[in-house]
Amino acid sequence: MTNKKNPEQKKQQEDIEGAENNVVVDNDDVEVTAEQRLKGELDDALEEVEKHKDLYLRTRAETDNFRRRMQREKEELSKFANESLLREVLPVADNLQRAVAHAREAGGNDSTLLDGVEMTLGQFNGVLEKFNVTPVEADGKPFDPACHEAMGQLESDDCDPNTVVQVLQTGYMLNGRLLRPALVMVSKTPAANVADANVTDANATDK
């Protein structure tokens, strides 16, 4: 028995076959689309890598800064750990210095006692040096408020005004930082010289 298609079915079959024949796969377009997709994924991956790299570098920099800061603080603590103790023992050096100065001024015959006090003072200064404690330079130096404390003024023709002419108490530095200021007397121009200068200025003005 022959299966014959009616004209309508035959036409539908022809339309389907024609449509199938008209479907053309453009391989070039498929390849371009895949390449673009891969390129986009690669760009996204590279961008993510840059973000993580930047985060890593910033974290490393912060860690290095923290490590250096902790090292500096450790060094500072080591340098000045004994600051309070050293400040408390400085009066011992003051008393030894006064004893030596008084003995020399008195001009006594007991040189053995003076030698003993001087030796003790020398040993004490040696201990201070071991802890990097050094005297503040003052005598004959220009007055420096950063390390000198003025206790008064003395008239003097021998030096410029504001020069340290007498040290009442030695000052000390600890590792370059002021431990105690030096108590000093500072020079000033004698009153007679000031008066003469005023007269000279007045005469010059009158002329």
Rank of each mutant, 00 (worst) to 15 (best):
G18L: 09
N21F: 04
N22W: 04
V24Y: 13
V25N: 05
D28N: 12
E31D: 15
E31F: 14
T33L: 13
T33A: 14
T33G: 08
E35W: 07
Q36G: 05
K39T: 10
V49F: 08
H52G: 07
K53C: 05
Y56V: 10
A61L: 07
N65W: 03
R67N: 15
R69V: 04
M70N: 08
M70Y: 04
E73C: 07
E73R: 10
E76F: 12
K79Q: 07
A81S: 13
N82D: 12
N82M: 13
E83Q: 11
P91E: 11
V92D: 01
A93C: 11
A93T: 06
N95Q: 14
R98S: 09
A103G: 13
N109Q: 08
S111V: 10
L113D: 03
T120P: 01
Q123N: 15
Q123V: 05
F124V: 01
F124L: 07
L128P: 00
L128F: 00
F131P: 00
P135H: 05
A138I: 02
K141D: 03
F143V: 03
D144C: 12
D158Q: 12
C159S: 14
V164K: 02
V165H: 01
L168V: 10
M173H: 06
L174C: 00
G176I: 00
L178Q: 07
R180K: 12
A182D: 04
L183H: 04
M185Y: 06
V186E: 01
V186C: 06
V186M: 04
K188S: 08
A191K: 13
N193S: 13
V194P: 02
V194K: 12
A197H: 06
A197D: 14
N198E: 14
A202V: 10
